[in-house]
């Protein structure tokens, strides 16, 4: 009696486990691509997107405009508390952006003013290497993307990024200014980009949503020529030419990440 009851319970358990598998097997069957999926007609297509920041043209106004343009374009919330900040592109001191690449005798003009830092869209991105769900991944054109739908919020990528380029939504971004106006209504500055939800990581996406529609990144557009953007695989692109003609540096090049944001000295 005892042994048969036990084996009955075992069979019951296995059956119950089997039932949980069936529905998800159904979902996996839907693998096909959407019909005729293609890029939009006017999309900007590249093989190795890169940004070049000209430190000589980077005035106070340019920096502020670029950051503001990005914040507006991506509905980035503003937090008073430094701990909760969401930053895609922001100002940093020279010594903070380039630790280990300074000495005491650099030109004052170089180190006096802050510069702009953002995700470097590394060729060998450590954040992509550590992500356990492929929520952050590298596109063929080099852009390191976030899939907010898949992110579980483990923040391994934040530990993995050597540039501090990633932010986590500690709170519901929709409840923060400027997404909430003075009257307390949800009133996002940009209708072209969704907000995020709490509990996911976000960062600069090189304005993938704008490239797809034939537009340059918002910060580049607002930079009055101080920020260049283009395809480094194309020898004749503006960025490739600029890098051939002037000396440039990258952040923490010794880590082997191959950043794709270059700073013209």
């Amino acid at each position: 009696m005892d042994s048969t009851r036990r084996s009955f319970l075992k069979i019951l358990g296995v059956t119950a486990a089997g039932l949980t598998v069936r529905p998800s097997a159904d979902a996996w069957a839907l693998g096909a691509k959407p019909r005729g999926a293609a890029p939009l007609d006017n999309a900007l297509v590249g093989k190795r997107w890169a940004m070049v920041i000209d430190l000589q043209k980077l005035t106070d106004k340019v920096r502020k405009d670029a950051v503001e343009a990005c914040n507006r374009a991506h509905n980035i919330p503003h937090y008073e508390n430094h701990d909760d900040e969401i930053k895609w592109i922001w100002e940093e001191g020279y010594h903070n952006a380039f630790p280990g690449q300074h000495n005491h005798h650099l030109p004052v003009e170089l180190t006096r003013d802050p510069l702009l830092v953002l995700c470097n869209h590394c060729e060998n991105p450590p954040c992509v290497r550590v992500c356990p769900t492929k929520a952050t991944f590298q596109r063929e054109d080099g852009i390191v993307m976030m899939d907010y739908h898949r992110c579980i919020g483990c923040r391994f990528c934040m530990a993995g990024c050597p540039y501090g380029s990633r932010s986590f939504n500690f709170w519901d971004p929709r409840k923060q200014p400027p997404l909430v106006n003075e009257k307390g209504e949800f009133d996002p500055p940009s209708p072209d980009y969704p907000t995020r939800m709490r509990g996911v990581v976000e960062k600069c996406n090189f304005c993938a949503e704008r490239l797809a529609k034939g537009k340059l990144p918002a910060c580049v557009e607002a930079s009055n020529g101080a920020l260049l953007f283009g395809d480094l695989a194309d020898h004749e692109s503006e960025v490739a030419k600029a890098l051939r003609s002037r000396y440039s540096i990258r952040r923490k090049p010794d880590l082997g990440t191959e950043p794709q944001v270059y700073y013209l000295i």
Binding site: R129, V130, C131, P132, T133, K134, A135, R150, C151, I152, G153, C154, R155, F156, F168, N169, R198, G199, V200, V201
Partner: peptide, 24 residues
């Protein structure tokens, strides 16, 4: 690990999208 996740409901994504290059 579970209480540390920002989106705990998506925990199973670790196994739905297995990623051998991730130590996690």
């Amino acid at each position: 690990v579970l209480v540390d996740l920002g989106q705990p409901m998506r925990l199973l994504n670790i196994f739905l999208y297995p990623t051998p290059n991730s130590i996690l």
